[in-house]
């Protein structure tokens, strides 16, 4: 089962520093005890250096960027994009092509993050019954062969999938669950719409599925605890379903927990 935070693989046009800040924020949200010091340790650096990088006081060298990126599990092609972007920032006269390349890569990566079919194809390759045949994939996922081929091109281009032998395709993102977190609202909306459409699709058959939503009034002081439980639940489910056994289906779990009300002003 995969456990990739795909969001981190989407090179945001704002730069690698923003990725680090978003990742730190995400980890702090997942774990209230997480800190800058812990993040520095996970990235293989000291907290003073990391702090300077995050505040823009220290330049991100290519070596540091690649080391941090590797620690975050980003793939080489994504890191190439960030390196090009940082080079462009350091030298405003750098080749326009470098920026264009980053833009193309960004579009590809965002399409992968928000397109359910990409994750589904990667997961399919782990099935015992997987067949490296576009018509078969299209039939299983309810897509057209053209849609499958467009997704395949993106996955190969981003280094997430390889056809390593005529009868063997390999998911290069690892044998883990794909987790999509902390992406832009449009991306989340697009992914949610696809999932909802699929979940309600009668043609998908009556195989086990759960589709429910609850709206409730909450004590906002307990929200951090709720977020922690959600993260734990997701981990436990991944462990349960990732255990040994036949792999004969691809499922998507989507958890959405967000305020419908704006934060009330603090009472004096």
């Amino acid at each position: 089962m995969k456990n990739t935070v795909v969001t981190s693989q989407a090179p945001a046009p704002r730069g690698f520093r923003d990725v680090l800040q978003e990742e730190l924020a995400a980890r702090c949200a997942d774990n209230p005890r997480y800190s800058l010091r812990a993040f520095a340790r996970d990235l293989g650096t000291d907290h003073s250096s990391l702090s300077q990088v995050l505040r823009g006081r220290r330049r991100l060298t290519e070596r540091t960027l690649r080391a941090f990126g590797a620690a975050l599990g980003l793939d080489a092609s994504t890191l190439d994009g960030y390196v090009a972007l940082e080079a462009r920032r350091a030298d405003p006269g750098a080749d326009e092509a470098a920026l264009r390349s980053v833009r193309e890569l960004t579009e590809d990566a965002l399409a992968v993050v928000s397109g359910l079919e990409h994750h589904a194809i990667l997961e399919l390759t782990h099935l015992d019954a997987f067949r490296p045949d576009v018509s078969w994939i299209a039939r299983v996922l309810g897509l057209t062969p053209d849609e499958v081929n467009i997704a395949l091109q993106r996955l190969i281009r981003l280094g997430m999938l390889t056809m390593e032998a005529p009868d063997r395709w390999r998911d290069l993102t690892g044998d883990r669950t794909t987790v999509v977190r902390h992406v832009g609202r449009d991306t989340v909306r697009h992914l949610s719409e696809q999932v909802r459409r699929r979940a309600l699709d009668e043609a998908a058959g009556d195989a086990g599925r759960e589709f429910s939503a609850t709206t409730l009034a909450v004590d906002t002081a307990r929200v951090p605890e709720a977020l922690e439980r959600i993260a734990r639940f997701r981990r436990e489910l991944v462990e349960l379903l990732g255990a040994d056994g036949a792999r004969d289906g691809v499922y998507h779990l989507e958890i959405s927990f967000a305020p419908l009300t704006r934060t009330p002003p603090e009472t004096p």
């Binding site: 390349s101 091109q153 281009r157 280094g159 390889t162 056809m163 005529p166």
Partner: peptide, 13 residues
């Protein structure tokens, strides 16, 4: 040259 798709083994061999 820039890589768009590294070498792949197609199903037809």
């Amino acid at each position: 040259a820039e890589v768009l798709a590294p070498p792949q083994a197609l199903p037809d061999g």
